[in-house]
Computed example of a mutant assay.
Amino acid sequence: MSFKQHLKVLIVDDQRTSRMLIRDALQQIGVENVVFAVDGEEALKSMMTTPCHIIISDFNMPKLDGLQLLKAIRSYPPTKKTPFIILTGKGDKELVQKAAALGVNNFLVKPVNVPVLQKTIEAVVGKLG
């Protein structure tokens, strides 16, 4: 089994369309093991029961937003080293600075396309090849 077939990705976004577009893009690069959460609270519960190898999280969500989720993931010892990519609709400088201070691994700007998604993930976990 190759690394990308083994990789388990958690997609966190309150927009169903966005979750499906990211899942489709992941499948195009060979990543099939994908789980979903509709907000940061659900994602946190999911990571505590069945951890994933990488989190791709929207920034703007109800309950826990992307930064609050990132902070919670980094403060929980079993998940604190989990690669975390923030997905945002805007390249907000303040958001980028706050996320960097909390230990984000990378950023992805919507709309997501396959080559950029692959490069963003590879910058965090290494070649998927």
Rank of each mutant, 00 (worst) to 15 (best):
S57W: 01
L102E: 06
D58W: 03
L21Q: 08
L117D: 03
L69F: 03
M48D: 07
V34I: 10
S18R: 05
K71A: 14
K45Q: 10
I86Q: 02
A72I: 02
G103C: 04
L10R: 04
M1I: 15
A123Y: 00
G30R: 09
F84M: 04
V104R: 00
V9C: 05
L108Y: 00
T79Y: 03
K45H: 07
L87F: 06
T79K: 04
V114R: 10
L87I: 08
L69K: 04
Q118N: 10
N106F: 01
D14A: 15
V114K: 08
P78E: 08
V109Q: 11
L44F: 05
S57H: 01
G30T: 10
N113D: 13
S75G: 05
A101Y: 02
D13N: 11
K93H: 10
G103S: 05
K127A: 14
V38Q: 11
K127G: 14
I29Y: 05
V109D: 07
E32W: 08
S2E: 13
Q15V: 15
N60Q: 12
P77L: 08
L21S: 12
L7R: 05
V96P: 00
A25I: 06
N33T: 11
L44S: 04
K90F: 10
F36G: 11
L102W: 01
V31E: 02
L44M: 10
V116H: 06
K90W: 08
F59V: 11
Q5N: 13
A123L: 03
M48K: 12
L87P: 00
K4F: 11
Q68M: 10
F107D: 05
V104I: 06
K8Q: 08
L10Y: 03
